[in-house]
Amino acid sequence: MSNQSTILQVENISTRFHTQDGLVHAVNGISFELKKGELLGVVGESGSGKSVTMMSLLKLLPMPPAEIVSGTASFEGQDLIQLDLDELRKVRGGKIGFIFQDPMTSLNPVLKIGYQLAEPLREHMGMSRKKARQRSAELLDLVGIPMAENRLNDFPHQFSGGMRQRVMIAMALACDPKVLIADEPTTALDVTIQAQIIDIVKKLRKELGMAIIWITHDLGVVAGIADRVAVMYGGYIVEEGPVEELYSNPKHPYTQGLLKTLPNLEGERAARLESIEGQPPNLHKKPTSCPFAPRCTHTMDRCRRENPVLIKRKENHKVACWWNPE
């Protein structure tokens, strides 16, 4: 893993929203890197800032109310944050593909699938109408949609949820992206369909070799596919490490708590679930202490005074926590 080169380097991204109720500090200085061909899982609950971080990279957030306060994101020698809209359009859907959570609302209901698939091909690759159509059919075939050619003339409502998500994946892959950002791609789907989609992504990753950022709240999904995992809480990455290390040896009390709250499908049945007491943090307040301190079982004075920074505890394993029993 060590000699893989970095394809995306994100430094200190902060994003906030100006709302009627005041400022919302959604993302607070996030840094991470993505290596070539790697699958990075980003895990967190709603409001932890995982989607906002990724959408900030491509400026997919409406601004205002959103504002990217600081940060850089270097991708192929460019800083994505500094790009103007024309330059960004070349990256979005081109070198960086995006799959959204809800395939129902992210496809245009009044345009045929074939048209929607051909759009990025003609826009980014300058293909002719005929060639784009041919490639679209290939893409649908690639994601396992039977009778691909015929289905190009169908509208999104003629596809089931799982099929629509396949179309979304085909669209994101249309221009051979270097990086694919998948924002909760299976959350809206049933388990058996989720298993199909995960299977396809695994296969495509082997064939096409792109790097993937997979955003999810489901620790199980990430366990099966990710190489590395970043856990987010209250707009921060609180822990980051290789998947096996992070699951077998979690260091942050939040990660430990999350893994303990989940009931298991095999093994001993716990008499009672462990739970993390309290509520997720209020993002209206500017964070000056550890965001997890009010719910943490190891809170010390320092946790309420200073926000911990993400530091290396072990090779590749980073934790943002003052509590260190070792």
Binding site: T192, L219, V221
Partner: peptide, 26 residues
């Protein structure tokens, strides 16, 4: 099939499991 499709939050077990992946939709 349903039981085999549920992701488990243990990377080692998750990668070793044999999956029955159902074709098609409900």
């Amino acid at each position: 099939a349903l039981l085999s499709a549920v992701p488990m939050h243990d990377p080692k077990m998750e990668r070793k499991r044999k999956r029955t992946i159902l074709v098609g939709d409900v």
